[in-house]
Design a protein around this nucleic acid. Structure first.
Length: 310
DNA sequence: AAACCCCTCAACCGCACCACC
DNA sequence: CGGTGGTGCGGTTGAGGGGTT
């Protein structure tokens, strides 16, 4: 007999969160930081179970979450990460710091799965040389692969920018230099965000956005910035703060740089949690040239080749 | 205008893992 | 070593909104 669900208790509220509840949760986390979720409902007076609080925070209220449409680049990245990692949404989300695993999972289930299926069917019916394409059904194999390489290159650049690998002299001199503090786990993001002052501004944005939605009669005062219009540096700026920015010495008290590595590199490093040299991750995921990934229980495939997976 | 259908996504549920005792 | 509690993850659900008939 298993443990009874935490939400079975009498009086535990379920369903959509109200702005008041969000504010209670956010103000509590601002003061105490995320974690120790068990005590959150008692300390805040929220009639929610701890899991619900954690989920609300990580999937909606946490700073640095980008909402709105996925860009083509994100889309293709998800497709390839899914091909590499399978349905390990948390692992995939760690490479898209502004998206939650829930978002990516939803997007996969509602959009990409269908899209790929359509592509595959089109491929069977039309020409075997056609490749799955997220936004252009008639793209040739060569075009598709070139575009993919561009995406990977751009993602690599953006990730580098986000992590200040090239521009941050403090980090360049630190012992962390050779370790990539990414993929960023949600727990890391949660922990680190507390140590960096000023980051909660984003949190306020989330709340404001939420309230905006609730005040149905009021017209939107300012249009939400579209994902497409944001530059790579802007889009990753919040994560930059999370992983340790130059403006504060947040790298000191921030989360450790120990990485959960949900990758084929596991075997190489001998454990599921490993510190991984930057060069390895970069080669693994973001090498401009096509790299062969030696999988452990995963398919051996070339980055950019999803043909054997669907 | 109403009924119906489809889609999206926030939230829930169950399980697994880990740390601690 | 087993029990327990806390947390994270992936699968699934269902309310609500938008589109279509």
């Amino acid at each position: 007999m298993g443990r009874p669900p935490c939400c079975d208790k009498l009086g535990v509220k379920k369903g959509p969160w109200t702005p008041e509840e969000d504010l209670m949760l956010v103000s509590y986390i601002q003061e105490h930081g995320p974690g120790n979720w068990r005590s959150v409902p008692t300390n805040t007076g929220l009639m929610r179970c701890s899991k619900s609080c954690r989920l609300r925070w990580t999937n909606y209220l946490r700073p640095g979450i980008k909402r709105g449409n996925f860009t083509d680049q994100e889309e293709r990245l998800i497709i390839h990460l899914q091909a590499l990692l399978g349905n390990r949404w948390a692992a995939i989300a760690s490479y898209l710091p502004e998206r939650t695993d829930n978002d990516i999972k939803n997007y996969w289930n509602t959009h990409l799965k269908k899209k790929l299926k359509r592509s595959q069917m089109g491929e069977e019916e039309e020409s075997p040389s056609k490749r799955p394409s997220s936004n252009n059904q008639s793209m040739s194999k060569g075009q598709w692969e070139r575009r993919l390489q561009t995406d990977i290159h751009m993602a690599r650049q953006a990730l580098r920018e986000a992590l200040s690998l090239d521009s941050d002299p403090g980090r360049a001199n630190s012992s962390h230099n050779t370790y990539l503090p990414s993929p960023v786990t949600s727990s890391q993001a949660c922990q680190t965000v507390v140590s960096s002052s000023g980051i909660y501004a984003s949190n306020t944005e989330n709340i404001a956005r939420l309230l905006e939605g609730w005040m149905k009669n009021k017209p939107k005062s300012q249009p939400e910035q579209s994902a497409e219009s944001a530059s790579a540096s802007t889009r990753y700026s919040i994560n930059k703060g999370v992983v340790g920015s130059t403006e504060s010495d947040s790298s000191e008290g921030s989360a450790s740089f120990k990485q959960e590595l949900p990758t084929p590199e596991m075997s190489e490093f001998g454990s599921e949690t490993a510190q991984v040299p930057l060069s390895v991750i970069e080669n693994w995921l973001f090498d401009e040239s096509t790299v062969m990934v030696q999988g452990v229980g995963l398919v051996d495939m070339q980055l950019g080749d999803t043909s054997g997976l669907f």
